[in-house]
Amino acid sequence: MSVRPAPSRKKVTVVVWAISALVAVLSGCGGDESERDYAVPDSLCGVAVDADELGPFLPDGKEITVRDKSGGGTTVCEVVVDDELALRATQAWVEEGKTTAYFASSQTLTAPEESAEDDRLRYSGNEAFGKTKDCIDKQHGQELYTAVQAQGSDHKDADAMKRLITDYTSEVEGSTSCEADGSE
Rank of each mutant, 00 (worst) to 15 (best):
Q149E: 11
E127V: 00
S43N: 15
I136C: 01
S105H: 05
K138L: 04
T75M: 09
G141P: 01
D42Q: 06
G72P: 08
E63R: 15
V49P: 00
K138D: 04
S153D: 05
A158P: 03
E96Y: 09
S34D: 13
A6W: 07
K11I: 08
S124Q: 07
V148T: 03
N126W: 00
R36D: 08
K10Y: 09
A104Q: 07
A89Y: 01
E184K: 13
D118P: 01
M1R: 12
K156H: 02
L22P: 00
D181G: 14
Q107L: 06
S106E: 14
P59T: 00
R9A: 11
E63V: 11
M161A: 02
K131R: 15
A104W: 09
S20V: 10
L109Q: 14
E78I: 10
G28C: 08
T146N: 03
L85V: 10
G141F: 03
P56S: 04
K156R: 15
E171I: 04
E84P: 04
R88P: 02
G30Q: 13
V76I: 15
C45T: 08
V80P: 09
L85I: 03
S177K: 10
Y102V: 04
T90L: 09
D137N: 15
S153H: 02
L22K: 00
G73L: 11
V25S: 06
D181F: 11
D60S: 09
D157W: 01
S34V: 13
P7D: 07
T74R: 13
P5C: 03
S170F: 10
V80G: 15
V40I: 11
D159Q: 13
A21S: 14
G61P: 11
E173M: 11
K62E: 13
A116T: 08
K62D: 14
A104E: 10
T90A: 04
G73I: 07
R36I: 06
G61H: 12
G30R: 15
C45D: 08
D137R: 01
E96T: 07
S175D: 04
F129N: 05
P5A: 12
A158L: 03
K10P: 00
S175M: 05
G125C: 05
S8Y: 06
E35G: 00
T132E: 09
P112E: 03
A6V: 10
K138S: 03
E184G: 13
K11L: 13
V47G: 06
A160V: 02
E179C: 01
L58S: 00
S27P: 01
F57Y: 15
E173F: 12
S20D: 04
D83A: 11
C29E: 08
E143L: 01
D134R: 15
A6S: 14
M161I: 01
F57L: 04
S8Q: 12
S170Y: 08
E96C: 02
D32T: 10
A48I: 05
E33M: 07
T100D: 07
